[in-house]
């Protein structure tokens, strides 16, 4: 399991990283935690001429909680998300979801930015970020721009980020105080991607429902949120199921995935409702 040869770069700041990407075009790829990319390279499903390691860029790290939002640097690891008490107080759904990702060793290395950027439909954070209506900041030679998580995913591994841009941070507006939340995931074993997963937020301001690995992109269902906000759980589950498009694979045939999705979505909604205060 030895990947094809590449040139290794470890820039100290974002400007240097962007300049390497500009010089080498689609020959270059950035690596964050590497736990999606390196396995693909070892299988030789991805060949990269220039690997740009972002680990030394301090400006890409950190969690900042303000009165109305949370800003998380792209290189913040899942382990750091889980162990941040400030984040757990402001947005407990992130810890709940991050604890369901892979296993401890992978969570020490895997990053939020890597998880949301590469467009793997199996990743959990993209659906969660759509549920939370997060915004991704991507930065290229022309400076930074923001893309809403709900507009970022085009199809499996295709996103609104250009090749020479780097996803630098994620901004999440805080849901209303006392909001109910749940991230529910069914997986075959530790370390597997979801057979079906669903994130739900409910508050006085409304409800939001998004799903993971049930189509070639994460799916946010506005109709499911509207129904759930009106207290119609059956209608919300039906709307969510109408929005997904699961494919048959080693996790099961379509009918099975739809069944599991129905169970997972309902559990997430019911748990979020129980947790909502006021």
């Amino acid at each position: 399991m030895i990947p094809a040869a590449f040139e290794y770069h470890r820039p100290a700041d974002l400007a240097s990283a962007l300049s390497i990407l500009n010089t080498h075009g689609d020959e270059a790829r950035v690596v964050a935690g590497g736990h999606s990319l390196i396995p693909m390279m070892k299988l030789r499903m991805t060949e990269i001429g220039h690997l740009v390691d972002l680990q030394d860029i301090a400006s890409l790290r950190g969690i900042e909680v303000t009165s109305d939002s949370v800003v998380i640097g792209a290189m913040t690891t899942q382990h750091e998300l889980i162990t941040s008490d400030a984040l757990a107080t402001a947005l407990p759904i992130i810890r709940e979801a991050a604890l369901l990702i892979a296993d401890p060793q992978v969570r020490y290395m895997g990053t939020l930015g890597g998880n949301v950027a590469n467009g793997d439909p199996g990743n959990d954070m993209p659906g969660l970020m759509q549920c939370l209506d997060a915004r991704f900041t991507v930065e290229g030679a022309d400076g930074p721009r923001e893309i809403k998580a709900r507009a970022y995913y085009e199809s499996a591994y295709f996103t609104a980020r250009e090749e020479e841009e780097i996803l630098t941070k994620v901004t999440i507006p805080l849901p209303a105080a006392g909001h109910g939340f749940a991230y529910e995931k069914q997986k075959r074993k530790v370390g597997d991607y979801a057979t079906a997963a669903c994130g739900v937020i409910v508050s006085g301001d409304g409800a939001s429902v998004a799903m993971t690995n049930l189509a070639d992109t994460p799916i946010w269902s506005e109709q499911a949120g509207t129904a759930l906000a009106a207290g119609d759980v059956d209608g919300a589950v039906a709307a969510a199921l109408a929005a997904i498009d699961p494919q048959e694979d080693m996790r099961g045939p379509i009918a099975f995935k739809r069944h599991v999705a129905g169970v997972v979505i309902r559990r997430a909604m019911e748990r979020a409702l129980t947790r909502a205060k006021g």
């Binding site: 590497g34 736990h35 390196i38 390691d53 382990h79 401890p104 060793q105 020490y108």
Partner: peptide
């Protein structure tokens, strides 16, 4: 200070 799988880290990293 992190437990890592050394089959998924390049020596360069």
């Amino acid at each position: 200070g992190k437990s890592v799988k050394s089959c998924t880290v390049f020596v360069a990293q």
